[in-house]
Design a protein around this nucleic acid. Structure first.
Lengths: 204, 204
DNA sequence: TGTACATCAGTGAACGCGCGTTCACTGATGTAC
DNA sequence: TGTACATCAGTGAACGCGCGTTCACTGATGTAC
């Protein structure tokens, strides 16, 4: 029986891979998917472009892994929020804040990359879907612990609203207007959250 | 005094410029700003890349003009909707429809390009801001003809919500979920529209 | 009416550059004996 | 303890290609006389 030869720390390559994914998060959110080159993504991690394909099958492979990682981080942050509706309200106010608007690289991957994800390969859309549903469940369990999955679609709609509001705020050239829409977005989201019910409202 | 020499129809060059802008609308919305090359944009208009700089100063110049044009079209469509809240409700349902989701190239420029606009040059953000405010005013005058500008920020927030919901629906790999979020987005938007008031709600 | 010339929208090749991806190689680290 | 060899994460040059932009040229259309 042969022994496993370990010339590097056993997790060296894996930790390099993880470092690439983490630095890629900031770059992709700042410059977009198409706007970020493989060479730049590797340089951010302190490596050269040649090493890329030892860690990932393709650029799409890294993008998919990065989006999954980013949404996972967002979910963990949310998991540390206070329980119940109060924690969610804090999340909404923090999400729709000026600080978040000014730091896309440190912020929500959806706000930075959503439309590009919609144009991307199926593998990326699947990772995005899974990651977003993780966040949705994290919110849902706080608002309706009895049956979180029954309010999934409603939470999804509210998160989508918040993402759109953040994007508009970033795109507006008028700073006062950019601030005002954040405040309105908070009102829209909080109102919608108050209206969340476990089943579709019926008209009769 | 010299006469103006006109070898081509007087509006020939202008109409070519307009054709480029119109065909660029579809291409940019389908492939994104960074994802659309100048050569492809010109080919769509039946021209070669060399002619581009006779019509536009730069790619950014075309993108800015195209975004202004696209938002203008969207405003005109809205202007033909029935007066009052009913017209707006129709607009919301048509915006958050499966048809719109499946045809980004024929749809809303914000849903397709918003995050990229946020990363773009100031000239593009300014054209975007102006164009979006035109749409906002078109909605506002239907909901609050007495003083449309007083509900600008609120309308802006609602439009932002709708844009985000459309983007999420396009990015989800799960068709049932993608449909469900559209329905939820309609509810969120209509509820918010019902709550629109001419001044900020005060707590005391 | 015919010929020389001017205009100018559009062509297509070329510029330097960065893209995603491939690959021969390096050099640090380990084992074998 | 020393030397030959194996492993393999990472390097850096190169591949073909498309990018945004420039520019010498074409050719259709007009005027001048």
């Amino acid at each position: 029986m042969e022994f496993l030869v370990v010339r590097y720390a056993q997790d060296h390559k894996l930790s390099t891979r993880q470092r690439i994914i983490e630095t890629a998060g900031r770059r992709l959110k700042n410059d977009g998917i198409v706007g970020s080159g493989v060479a730049a993504l590797m340089k951010d991690a302190g490596l050269t472009n040649g090493a890329f394909y030892a860690h990932f099958e393709s650029k799409n492979d890294l993008v998919a892994a990065t989006i999954a990682d980013q949404l996972g981080i967002q979910r963990q942050v949310l998991a540390q929020a206070p329980h119940g509706a109060l924690g969610i309200e804090q999340f909404v106010r923090s999400y729709l804040s000026v600080g978040h608007r000014e730091s896309p690289g440190e912020g929500c991957p959806s706000a930075a990359l959503l439309a590009e994800v919609g144009r991307s390969a199926e593998v990326i859309k699947r990772e995005y879907t899974d990651g977003l549903l993780g966040i949705v469940d994290e919110v849902a369990i706080r608002l309706w612990p009895q049956d979180p999955s029954s309010i999934r679609a409603q939470i999804l709609g509210i998160l989508g609203s918040m993402i759109g509001v953040m994007q508009v705020s970033r795109a507006l050239a008028d700073p006062a207007l950019a601030d005002a829409i954040l405040e309105q977005g908070i009102q829209v989201a909080l109102t919608a959250l108050r209206n969340v019910q476990p089943s579709q409202p019926l008209s009769s």
